[in-house]
Structures are given as structure tokens and as C-alpha cells.
Simulated scan of single mutants.
Amino acid sequence: MEATEHDSQFGLSSEEKDSELSDGELQLAFTKGLLKPGLNVAQQEPKATVNNTEGLKQCLMEFQRNLPWIERLDLSNRPAVDIVAKAEGTLTVLDTEDINAEDDFQRELYFYRQAQAAVLEALPRLQRLKIATKRPEDYFAEMAKTDQHMQKIRKKLIMKRTAMEKSEKAKILREQRKYGKKVQIEVLQKRQKEKKAMISAVKKYQKGMTDKLDFLDIDQKKGKNEASMTKVPMNKKGPNAKRKFKDQKFGFGGKKRGSKWNTKESHNDVSGFKAKVAHGKGGKKFGREGKQKPNKRPGKDTRRRMKNSSR
């Protein structure tokens, strides 16, 4: 009754009543002096440990087997000596055994040197026991994974590599297309700009705002440049026969003006004069203009009759 009156007095719920230690019970224990101020922790007795040495020795004797070394192949040795450091008379960290376990390089080097020492000790012992230590050339070792599984892995790797190569090629093509489009846009913009400039210049000329026709010269020069760029150069070793004849007849290079004028010596030189050719009395017949008359071609009917008669 006192507990229920106390619970109703402090307004405790049914869940708090069912708990192991409710607030009301703790307050009652505190008022009675059962609880001390501070952290109250339940004290547990320490677990008793039994050091049964005889039992452990007996268990060790039960599973211990005196097997030969060839069946165990166990070695307990120190790391191999660094020959270079020994010759120089210096000591390394591994020789002093002052190794930092947190240093990955020192730790791995210690394992490596210890494995070297184990090999140097084990190989002579195996050779004395006449046990082969080299693998024969025709040795077949069964792999942990089957050939079919490795073939699948190989195919996947090849597919992955080909996919990467295709993606790289596609990337290069996309970049080339972007660059080509960019150049094309720049060329079109340049043409539109030149066209606008030409139209504005023509309008100014039509309105009488300017009397210069420089824009026509620019357009012609542009056309010539484009034609020269599109023209395929021909591989010529030298000038042709016609060019050589004209060069021989008229000359080339140097001073042009007045180079073919008559001089006193050329005027008095008549060694190349031929009267027959000059007056048209030679063997060849010349017309009024001094040209040889061409052979007159027979008419169409005449040629047809000649053709029929030859048949």
C-alpha cells in the first residue's frame, strides 16, 4: 500500500512500475541512505583464472609429433647480412634491429632479408637430402582457375580494350567535326562580311558618295588567289619548245624598252636580204599579202562523186 501510494504521489506509469528500478524506488533508496552521491555502478567480482600448467603440457604431448625436417620444412633464422654494408663497415637498421613497425619500407625489407636467409639455409639442406629444388621444363601445374574461366576473362579484357579504342576514335572524330564546323562557320561569316562590305561600297558608288572602284580590284585579286590555290601545279622540268623559241627570238629578262630598235650597223647590214623573196619571185607562190595560198578543198558534191567512183 505504501508503494502504491508513493507511486501515485509521484505519478509513475505502469511501464516505470514494471521496470527493474523505477524512479520512485531510487528516490526511496536515496532517502534511506542506501545510495551514495556520484556514479553508482554495479560491482562484479573478478573472473578467476586457472593456470593449469600440467594440463597444458599433457595436451601438448598428445598432439605433438616428432616428424623429420623434410616433412616440416620449418626454419627460424635472422635476416641475411647486407654484403655491401658489411664490406663498407657500416651497419643498417636491420642489423641493429631498431626497426620501426609503422614504416612499411623497413618492415617489407626485413621480411625480404629474412626470406633470403631462409633460402640460403634451406637450399644446401635440400641438396644434401637429394631433393630437387628446380622445376623441370615439362612441369605442369594445375591452376586454381580453369582454362574456360581464363578465356572468359581474356575475352572481357579484349572487349573492354576495343570499347576504349572505339570511344577514343569517336572522341577524335567528334573533335575533328567540331573543328571542321567551326572553320566552316568562320569562312561563311567572312564571306558574308565581305559581301556586306561589297554591297555597301557599290551603294556608295551609285549614290556618288565616292568615285573609287577599289572594291572591284579587291574582288578580282581574291578570285585570282582562289584560282591559284585551287589550280594543281604541274611538274615541269623546264620550258617547252614554244617558250624556248620565243625566248630565243625575242629574248627574255633584262632591259626591254628600246632593245629591238634599229641601229646604224643593223641598218647598213644587208647580208640577209634576198631579192626573190622580197619581190615574190621565188619558187613558192604567194598571194597579195605575201602568204602562200592554201590548197582548195573540193566541194561536197565533188567529194561524194569521187567517193562513189572509187567504189
Rank of each mutant, 00 (worst) to 15 (best):
D103S: 12
R305T: 08
E265S: 15
K231S: 15
P37S: 00
P124C: 02
K32C: 05
E102Y: 08
F30G: 06
D103K: 02
F111R: 13
S259V: 10
E45K: 14
K212C: 12
T133N: 05
A241C: 03
Q9A: 13
N235T: 09
S271E: 04
L91S: 14
E121W: 05
R161C: 03
M164G: 06
L216C: 09
R65G: 00
A275Q: 11
Q176W: 00
H267S: 06
R288M: 05
E54I: 09
G55D: 07
G280K: 04
A141S: 02
L213N: 06
F10H: 13
N100W: 03
D23L: 10
K145Q: 12
A227R: 06
L173G: 01
Q176T: 04
L126M: 07
F215G: 01
Q27A: 15
R257A: 14
R288C: 01
R78E: 07
G180A: 09
S271T: 15
E2L: 11
Q184S: 13
W69C: 00
E168L: 08
A3E: 07
K246W: 13
K181T: 03
A101E: 10
E2V: 08
T49W: 02
E194M: 14
K130W: 00
E142F: 00
V84P: 00
T230K: 12
D269W: 03
N52C: 02
S8A: 09
M234T: 12
Q248W: 10
K203F: 01
K181I: 02
N51R: 10
H267L: 15
I99V: 15
T4Y: 05
I83P: 15
K130R: 12
R304Q: 05
H149G: 00
K178Y: 01
Q220H: 09
T49M: 04
F30M: 10
Q176I: 04
L216E: 13
A163D: 06
G251E: 03
G272R: 11
V93I: 10
R128H: 07
S200D: 13
D104P: 14
F30R: 14
W261K: 11
R243C: 01
G238E: 06
K190M: 02
E5D: 08
P239M: 01
Q116H: 10
L75R: 05
K145R: 14
A163L: 08
K284V: 15
R243E: 11
I185D: 14
L35Q: 00
A42K: 15
I199E: 11
L173I: 13
E108A: 07
E88Y: 07
E186S: 12
K32F: 08
V232T: 14
K36S: 03
A117M: 09
L188G: 01
L73E: 02
N262Y: 07
M61G: 05
I218D: 11
V119W: 08
L126C: 02
V202F: 08
L94G: 04
K166Y: 04
Q176E: 11
S22H: 02
F215A: 01
M209H: 14
K264S: 15
S228N: 15
L21R: 13
D217E: 12
A87S: 10
L129Y: 07
N100Y: 03
G33E: 00
S19N: 09
Q9M: 11
S19L: 08
F286Y: 10
T210Q: 11
